[in-house]
Amino acid sequence: MDSLVVLVLCLSCLLLLSLWRQSSGRGKLPPGPTPLPVIGNILQIGIKDISKSLTNLSKVYGPVFTLYFGLKPIVVLHGYEAVKEALIDLGEEFSGRGIFPLAERANRGFGIVFSNGKKWKEIRRFSLMTLRNFGMGKRSIEDRVQEEARCLVEELRKTKASPCDPTFILGCAPCNVICSIIFHKRFDYKDQQFLNLMEKLNENIKILSSPWIQICNNFSPIIDYFPGTHNKLLKNVAFMKSYILEKVKEHQESMDMNNPQDFIDCFLMKMEKEKHNQPSEFTIESLENTAVDLFGAGTETTSTTLRYALLLLLKHPEVTAKVQEEIERVIGRNRSPCMQDRSHMPYTDAVVHEVQRYIDLLPTSLPHAVTCDIKFRNYLIPKGTTILISLTSVLHDNKEFPNPEMFDPHHFLDEGGNFKKSKYFMPFSAGKRICVGEALAGMELFLFLTSILQNFNLKSLVDPKNLDTTPVVNGFASVPPFYQLCFIPV
């Protein structure tokens, strides 16, 4: 009986604490739906499609509103004006990374994606500088992407125009580009180590996009005490870190300090320079996690976009025909596509942009946080508050993009057929937390897609009208449904 009384008292205290925290903070924060004790607004949000729920709530509470995930307040920004004001106009104040408990377990605050403060700034600055020195957006990395595009075309030829699921092959190409940047090595598509790495990356994007992960991140005790797919994700990350550590040891034994070959060499050189400046942010643990982040951000996002792009091109054969006509006119058949071609191919450029806009790969991006107490639109948001960005509300804005739910390359073309930029184009987020590999991803999408369409016609196994382009999961990332196609050599 005594234990029951204690339990009831504990629960009562928890409920009172929950109510007090919510009521004391709500006077400062933007308005929002009334949260339930302990669980907050979790029942009012469709976990399978958070973005749709945010759109519905914005119609009631406006472009800036507050939700509670458990006891934790989260300020939501919906629509271009609110997102721009926060991420661009007040970029420094909104540059923090929001709480992501599962990532905390995986990387302990290291790396480039989930770190904060001085650690994040130094690692991000170093990573950007190193990638630029190796030619991100310049010639040397373009050579690597072109080489991988040629290998991709050869792998597709091996399908002999038979029906195939493109998931694996389209994942190999961007993964190999990242391998060449980090390890100075590309792998054969049949290499077992490479296959294991690909498998872990593919599993992780599916797990991260599941409703279960949303629950884990908002009720963090689940991570330590409950079984579930989150444990598989943590094991996959541990596998990748151990693999990278092996490569780091190989580099330490063979590195030429006067001739760095890749990202690992550059990081080890930085560690050597910083060894007298303790404590340094440049450690082996930081290198492991930064490399894992580059793999995660640079492989599955690009391969998922490529997979979605081919599905949309199957669905819209008239678009595919126009792209192939432009390829034939500008590039021809006797040389590989290059980035200089893009400025002469406005329709193809528009298609690449429209694919990214339409699929809305990361509907709410990753959570941000404010780095200080900030007054925002007459609300006071306390330091450390998590900020949720609705990228969907920007990419699918119906004023900027008429009929935003329709796939239409003319969203990025003017009346004369010239490519038209849009400030609403934010597939990689915006501001200080914009994806480090934005330029690389854009290069890969253009070169891989043009190389495929230069060499193959795409054949659907069903009537294009019957192809479903609805994402199968739409949590962290929008993942396309399973499909097969035939690559018919031109």
Rank of each mutant, 00 (worst) to 15 (best):
K275E: 10
V370N: 05
S478C: 11
N204M: 07
V75Y: 01
P427A: 10
I244G: 01
D463Q: 14
T130L: 11
N466P: 03
Y358E: 00
V319I: 15
C10G: 14
T320R: 14
L43T: 11
G431V: 07
K249R: 15
Y189G: 03
L268Y: 05
I169R: 02
P163I: 06
N418I: 10
K206G: 10
V462G: 09
G70T: 06
S303L: 03
I264V: 10
I182F: 13
N218G: 15
S254Q: 13
S3Y: 11
L361G: 12
S53E: 14
Y358H: 08
I182P: 00
T283W: 04
S390V: 08
G27D: 10
K190R: 13
T450Q: 00
T301D: 04
Y243L: 15
S210V: 03
K315E: 02
E104W: 11
L14E: 00
A350K: 01
D408F: 02
C13Q: 02
Q340G: 08
C372Q: 15
V394F: 03
V248E: 01
K200V: 13
A321G: 12
L447F: 07
E328L: 13
S254T: 14
I374M: 12
S115V: 06
I141H: 08
E199G: 10
P221A: 08
I434Y: 08
A103R: 10
Q22L: 11
P471I: 04
H230K: 08
S220R: 12
D341Q: 02
F263K: 03
F219P: 03
G111A: 04
M339T: 12
D397L: 02
L54D: 01
S210A: 05
L87A: 05
A86C: 14
M345I: 01
F428T: 03
P221S: 11
A161Q: 13
C10H: 02
A309E: 01
H316A: 05
M339E: 07
L306F: 03
L195E: 11
N289F: 06
L440P: 01
K247A: 09
T364P: 02
P464L: 13
E274D: 09
H410R: 10
N116D: 08
S280C: 10
G70V: 02
G417P: 04
L87M: 09
C372E: 15
R144K: 10
S23Q: 14
E400S: 04
E92K: 04
R150H: 07
L195W: 05
I50Q: 11
P481D: 03
L67N: 00
P471D: 02
K432R: 15
P279S: 14
L57F: 14
R125L: 11
V352R: 02
K399Q: 12
R329C: 12
L366R: 06
Q278T: 14
G431P: 04
L311H: 02
I244E: 01
F194R: 02
L90G: 09
E122L: 07
K241S: 06
C175L: 12
I215N: 02
M255A: 13
E250M: 07
S365M: 09
L43S: 10
V490E: 09
G296V: 15
Y189H: 04
H353W: 02
K315R: 07
F487V: 02
F407P: 00
G40W: 00
G111T: 03
E326P: 00
V248K: 03
K206A: 12
R377P: 00
N455P: 00
H396K: 11
P427M: 10
G171R: 14
P33S: 00
G25C: 15
D408W: 05
E246V: 04
N277G: 13
N277H: 15
G332Q: 04
T392I: 02
N398R: 11
S286I: 08
Q252E: 13
E354K: 00
H316I: 02
N457G: 09
N474C: 15
V75H: 00
I47F: 14
G109P: 12
L380D: 15
T55P: 08
W212F: 08
V490R: 13
S51E: 06
H410T: 15
C13W: 06
R132S: 14
I182C: 07
M443G: 02
F428E: 05
T66P: 01
D468L: 12
I47S: 11
S254D: 11
S429D: 05
A149L: 01
F295Q: 01
Q356K: 04
S51N: 15
T371R: 07
R125I: 06
A149V: 02
D262T: 06
E253T: 05
G62W: 00
F126H: 13
S286C: 13
S242I: 02
D373P: 02
Y68I: 02
Y308V: 02
V76S: 02
I182S: 02
L314M: 11
N455D: 06
K190S: 11
K241R: 15
L467G: 01
G117Y: 10
K249L: 11
K383S: 09
L77S: 00
C175W: 05
M255C: 13
Y308R: 00
N378D: 09
M257N: 15
K423C: 12
F114P: 11
I244Q: 07
V83I: 14
A161E: 06
Y358G: 01
Q22N: 14
I99G: 12
I389G: 01
L485E: 00
L131N: 03
V145D: 00
L380F: 07
Y358D: 01
T450A: 11
Q192L: 11
F419G: 02
L195V: 14
F412M: 03
E93R: 04
P404K: 02
V292R: 12
M136P: 11
F226A: 11
I213C: 13
T299R: 02
S51C: 10
I359E: 03
S140A: 09
L306M: 13
D468Q: 15
C179G: 05
L43E: 04
N202Y: 12
K315N: 03
S280Y: 06
Y68T: 04
F412D: 00
K118R: 14
T371H: 10
K432E: 09
L453P: 00
S478G: 08
V436A: 14
V370D: 00
R377L: 02
V330N: 09
V472M: 12
